[in-house]
């Protein structure tokens, strides 16, 4: 009745290898596309493959990665947070107000607290009250932007020396903000792959009712993920404010949600949840970052860059569909 263990192992290995070649190729699509894009830009512009430019791309992508990691986890659980762009602004503005008074740590705390509060509001409304996440976070997107603008009535800029130094500086040749992103990525990987919680959130994304009946703390899991995106957005806001040495409440983080969701989707996390990997999301962010950078170097107008980004979002969704079809077929 039971196959001997050795055969199981051998067959298992065989099966995995032979799984389905096309889906595996699609899995490689993302890294390949990234490399292809880099080659393309390198041939078109001498400025692209310079150390300074590549460094610029990673620096620009750092805040996006900090946003994308928790957003990816939330999406895997079949949730969504559209309010992150405004949370970036609120957190940046809150931190900036204290920083202008030379209160560095208080600014940091205020920024994080803003993200925590917005995350708790989103999470409670979605998971405890059972409201639709798109509606709730669309609401907090508007509210957050309003709050940021009210507080940023007077321009917020000119921060204390340590803040500016952190935002612009490097440690071991790597920009400080990139270090922050690396820490967040490692944390994200630990959460998803090394903690039971990672599997629990996937289970919620696959079938919420079955997850509840299996005894998982579905409400807590969902709440915690909205808190995570709130905190991620807050950290990103603080990073951006420090880097720009200012916190413009009206423009900081505008449109971030679209950019981050595109990157996450491109990174292979479907909107329907239930699967995904952090490293692919990181590549998704970098791919978009390279695309954005290359378009600037090649003098694309910002309008046409916008059109390209929108198209990438749709292409990413189409790719996902193809991938799932192939999987079903097999």
């Amino acid at each position: 009745m039971n196959e001997p263990a050795t055969q199981t192992g051998a067959l298992g290995f065989f099966n995995r290898q032979g799984a389905d070649p096309i889906a595996r190729m699609l899995g490689l699509f993302l890294p390949l596309a990234t490399i292809l894009l880099m080659v393309l830009f390198a041939t078109q512009s001498d400025a692209f493959l310079t150390l300074a430019n590549l460094r610029g791309i990673t620096l620009q992508s750092a805040a996006t990665i900090v946003l994308a990691v928790p957003t990816a986890l939330l999406l895997m659980s079949a949730g969504i947070d559209l309010s992150i762009g405004s949370t970036v602004a609120v957190a940046g503005v809150m931190a900036g107000i204290f920083w202008q008074q030379d209160l560095i740590w208080a600014g940091l705390a205020a920024g994080l607290a803003a993200g925590l509060v917005i995350g708790l509001v989103n999470g409670s409304l979605v998971s405890l009250a059972g409201l639709n996440p798109i509606v709730v976070t669309l609401g907090t997107l508007a509210i957050g932007r309003g709050i940021a603008q009210v507080f940023a009535d007077n321009p917020i800029f000119d921060f204390p020396e340590p803040v500016v130094a952190f935002g612009a500086g490097s440690t071991l040749e790597i920009p400080n903000l990139v270090w922050v992103a690396i820490v967040v990525v490692v944390l994200g990987m630990i959460v998803l792959n090394r903690l039971p919680y990672g599997k629990h959130l996937i289970a919620v994304g696959v079938n919420e009712r079955a997850a509840y009946l299996a005894g998982l703390r579905v409400k807590m899991i969902k709440l915690s993920l909205y808190v995570a995106t709130g905190l991620g957005a807050a950290i990103a806001g603080i990073m951006l404010a420090a880097r720009f040495n200012s916190a413009p409440g009206g423009t900081l983080g505008v449109g971030t949600e679209l950019f981050v969701l595109t990157a996450v989707l491109l990174g292979g996390v479907p909107f329907t949840g239930g699967q995904g990997a952090i490293w692919r999301v990181v590549i998704g962010v970098l791919l978009l970052g390279i695309l954005r950078n290359g378009m600037v170097l090649l003098n694309f107008s910002s309008e046409s860059a916008q059109i390209v980004l929108g198209s990438v979002l749709i292409i990413a969704a189409a790719l996902e569909l193809v991938r799932q079809r192939l999987y079903r077929k097999q």
């Binding site: 289970a203 696959v206 079938n207 009712r209 079955a210 997850a211 299996a214 239930g274």
Partner: peptide, 9 residues
């Protein structure tokens, strides 16, 4: 199928 199995897992 709806209450206990997580198909893709």
């Amino acid at each position: 199928s709806t209450m206990s199995i997580f198909g893709p897992m």
